[in-house]
Computed example of a mutant assay.
Amino acid sequence: MENRWRGEVMLVVNDQHHRMRLTLGALAELEEDLSEPSLMALVQRFETGGFSTRDVLALLCAGLRGGGIDMSPDSLAQAEIDGGPMRAAQAAAELLARAFMVQS
């Protein structure tokens, strides 16, 4: 089970459940990998629906790394994700949202 307060999101890849989360290091890598000036620009891409498949793969790979699984975007692109592309995009958006969630 995921811990939302830690920013965790579950994803089933090749019939295995994986707990993902975005660490500070992963967020810094995302800025560089996706050529964004800031994470807010990436968040805005997701909020406006302007994200690409590359964005989704990069976010999911970063989240998997944060959860202890090292998987390349090429490997993930060939993997079977339960729920297909829609679930992948939803999980990527959840990762971003939970990374910036403020606990009250």
Rank of each mutant, 00 (worst) to 15 (best):
R4W: 02
W5I: 14
R6T: 05
R6K: 15
E8P: 04
E8H: 08
V9N: 03
M10A: 12
M10Y: 11
L11S: 01
L11N: 02
L11T: 03
V12T: 08
V12R: 09
V13H: 05
V13M: 05
V13S: 08
D15C: 09
Q16T: 15
H17Y: 05
H17P: 04
H17V: 12
H17N: 12
R19G: 10
R19N: 13
R19E: 11
M20H: 09
R21C: 05
T23N: 02
L24N: 12
L24I: 13
L24Q: 09
G25P: 06
G25A: 10
A26L: 00
A26F: 00
L27E: 10
L27Q: 12
A28W: 13
A28S: 15
A28C: 11
A28K: 15
A28F: 11
E29W: 13
E29Y: 12
E29C: 08
E29G: 05
E29N: 12
E31Q: 15
E31R: 14
E32L: 13
E32N: 13
E32Q: 14
D33H: 13
D33Q: 15
S35C: 12
S35F: 14
P37A: 10
S38R: 08
S38M: 05
A41I: 11
A41N: 15
A41E: 14
V43N: 01
V43E: 02
Q44V: 06
R45I: 02
F46S: 03
E47W: 10
E47R: 13
E47I: 06
T48F: 09
G50A: 15
F51T: 09
S52W: 12
T53G: 09
T53A: 07
R54E: 14
R54Q: 14
D55T: 07
V56C: 00
L57W: 00
A58N: 10
A58Q: 10
A58R: 09
L59V: 03
L59D: 01
C61V: 14
C61M: 06
C61D: 00
G63P: 00
G66Q: 01
G67C: 04
G67F: 08
G67I: 09
G67S: 06
G68T: 06
I69N: 04
D70G: 01
M71W: 05
M71V: 12
S72M: 07
P73S: 06
D74P: 07
D74H: 12
S75A: 13
L76C: 06
L76E: 04
L76D: 02
Q78W: 07
Q78V: 05
A79I: 04
A79H: 07
A79V: 05
E80L: 11
E80H: 12
I81R: 00
D82S: 12
G83I: 08
M86N: 11
M86W: 08
A88S: 03
A89D: 00
A89E: 02
A89P: 03
A89H: 01
Q90N: 10
A91Q: 02
A91N: 08
A91G: 07
A92C: 12
A92E: 03
A93S: 09
A93R: 06
E94N: 07
E94A: 08
L96D: 01
L96N: 00
A97G: 04
R98K: 10
R98C: 00
R98I: 01
A99P: 01
A99S: 11
A99I: 01
F100V: 01
M101G: 05
M101D: 03
M101Y: 11
V102F: 15
Q103H: 14
Q103T: 13
Q103W: 06
Q103G: 15
S104N: 12
S104L: 07
S104C: 09
